[in-house]
Amino acid sequence: MAMLELEKVRISFGALTTLDDLTLHVNKGEIVSVIGPNGAGKTTLFNVITGVYRPDSGSITLDGQNLVGKDPAKVTRSGVARTFQNVRLFLNMSVIENVMAATFGHTHAGLFSSALGLPRSRREEADVREQAEELLRFFGTRLTGYRWEEPAYSLSYANRRRLEIARALATKPKVLLLDEPAAGMNPKETHEITEVVERLRSEKGLTILIIEHDMHVVEGVSDRVVALDHGVKIAEGDFDSVATHPAVIEAYLGRKAAETK
């Protein structure tokens, strides 16, 4: 059953059509990777799903529920969370606050109940903190024991990426969009990310769409791989078939390389 479904989604910026009638679905509990050379439209795909851009035409549904026209906050509340290619944490807030802030959509304390410290809002606050701590513990020793009250900018790059995933999880998503989760990581950390993605599915029951350039990660995690080029889906299937698909090789290496292959 399709959890996330895109039907003929098209978006153009001026004369440039970034997504050209793209049709894509991700089944419940599936991990799908999106690959493609730079400028293929991968991040635009994420931006269209999450409501940053509104598609010119086409439909996007989550679990049967329409997402087109909703603002990013509403899309997130309907159950799509994301991370960013160029990590966008709330750098001057503490590590744990980053995660706690993301529970906003499913918590309720208002201005007055917070100001007065009503029991209900206190309970919610304690609950939010507990949720955040649990999410930080998801990354094992990597984010535990770390000074959670320290500002997020004091984290190392790899930990920032982990924190961003923890933050996305705090929105209680059904579908998680990971934009290059392994970028800038060393081989050991990259391997860990592969495991983390697998655990996100098995332990959190998430449906996952990943953009990734590191083919080891793609090979390690994907049930299915979708290759994009110039906003068009050029190949789809398991890793091996997509990786050897002539159109994919051509997109990455040029026509000549594809012919000699």
Binding site: F90, M93, M100, A101, A102, S114, T171
Partner: peptide, 24 residues
């Protein structure tokens, strides 16, 4: 608490704040 944190996320990065479900 909740509202104050959300305010500060807007100051930090309003796009990321929205992506975290915060109605900025």
């Amino acid at each position: 608490t909740r509202i104050g944190r959300a305010w500060r996320t807007i100051r930090e990065d309003s796009l990321a704040a929205q992506a975290m479900g915060i109605s900025i």
